[in-house]
């Protein structure tokens, strides 16, 4: 057994992918010689050299577009967008180019590229460095979206993303970088995209969440267990493809659903899960579906304000209690 952090898992997945396939290359801002601003990638440049691990200028549109050009000509690039909040800077390349290149050419290309980005609040980075962006990307067929929440998933989903012949955006939660698990190294294997994980089995209510919200939902579930509420917590792991089956099976069992998002309410991914429940699970539901999220608020710098905007264990527990009472 070894103790591994979520940060270590990223580095290890990248190193193993670079070792496994010489077409894998990795680039981004300060990822090579400096080892990344979150110190996620130290040592890769030293091990694999400057031809395969490269620093880029601060030019998100150019290097994300270059990842596409490299991917359609035989490489398997992994590009890092330092903060996920920078996704819109490269949005034309992501939404109009990367996602559509295979389709609009009539299937002439595969686009085996991975974009990694650190997202999430809780570290005091302020309004433009703290957002979770999966919902911005959800409306773009042609890409896959991965949101690892555990150490093993961070490793396994990133490996699978890099091996995938489609563009995959891997969103890493920056608050989880120091999160550690005791694991057997043999458990560090590829994790399939499109398969949710039931993190806690329960019979009374289904809680769907990802990343930091998944961990807080598990804490809320423990708190509520003492009150006689038995929560089932589902970690989506990937947004596209979405594992509808695991969600529906759980709703069929519990009849109640709470969705916890670290994001604003309008247009959030939680609305899709609620719509799924309404469409395919309505007859199993015994209570209205509730979404816990940031409402219409923005992330602020000041600690009490940042703490307030992101759903915490108490808010999640309150929402679960409310749905149990309904």
């Amino acid at each position: 057994m070894i103790k591994l952090t979520y940060r270590d898992a990223v580095r290890r997945a990248l190193a193993d992918a670079l070792r496994a396939d010489e077409n894998v290359i990795f680039f981004g801002e300060d990822v090579a010689e400096a080892g990344g601003v979150f110190k996620v990638t130290p040592g890769l440049y030293e091990e694999f050299g400057g031809e395969r691990v490269m620093d880029t200028p601060i030019s998100e549109e150019a290097f994300i577009g270059a990842a596409l050009g490299a991917a359609i000509t035989g490489m398997r690039p992994v590009a890092e967008l330092m903060f996920a909040d920078f996704v819109p800077v490269a949005m034309d390349q992501i939404a109009n180019q990367i996602a559509k290149y295979r389709y609009m050419s009539g299937g002439q290309f595969i686009v085996p590229l991975t974009i990694r980005a650190a997202q999430g609040a809780g570290a005091g980075f302020g309004t433009q460095h703290s957002q979770c962006v999966e919902s911005w990307l959800l409306n773009i067929p042609g890409i896959k979206i991965v949101v690892p929440g555990t150490v093993k998933d961070m490793y396994g989903l990133l490996r699978t993303a890099i091996d995938d012949n489609n563009p995959v955006i891997v969103l890493e939660h920056k608050v989880l970088y120091n999160y550690a698990e005791e694991i057997d190294e043999a458990e560090l294997t590829h994790v399939p995209l499109g398969k949710a994980a039931v993190r806690r089995v329960g019979k009374d209510i289904t809680v769907v969440a990802t990343q930091l919200m998944m961990h807080r939902s598990l804490d809320a579930a423990e708190r509520l267990a003492g009150e006689g509420i038995d929560c089932e917590v589902i970690d989506l792991r990937t947004m596209i493809p979405l594992d509808e089956e695991t969600i529906l099976e759980s709703i069929a069992k519990t009849g109640r659903l709470v969705i916890v998002e670290e994001a604003p309410h309008a247009g959030g991914w939680g609305a899709d899960i609620a719509a799924l429940a309404a469409d395919k699970g309505i007859y199993w539901l015994d209570a209205p579906v509730k979404r816990v999220n940031m409402g219409g608020a923005l992330i602020a710098y000041s600690p009490p304000l940042e703490d307030e905007v992101v759903p915490n264990v108490s808010r999640i527990a309150d929402a679960i209690r409310a749905v149990m009472r309904a």
């Binding site: 290097f63 270059a66 596409l68 050009g69 490299a70 490489m75 690039p77 180019q97």
Partner: peptide, 18 residues
């Protein structure tokens, strides 16, 4: 999209160099 083809060409040239 005006200009979007330039970064893509840069990436294709990167493949040739590597």
């Amino acid at each position: 999209i005006v200009g979007a083809q330039l970064p893509i060409a840069v990436g294709a040239a990167l493949t040739s160099r590597l």
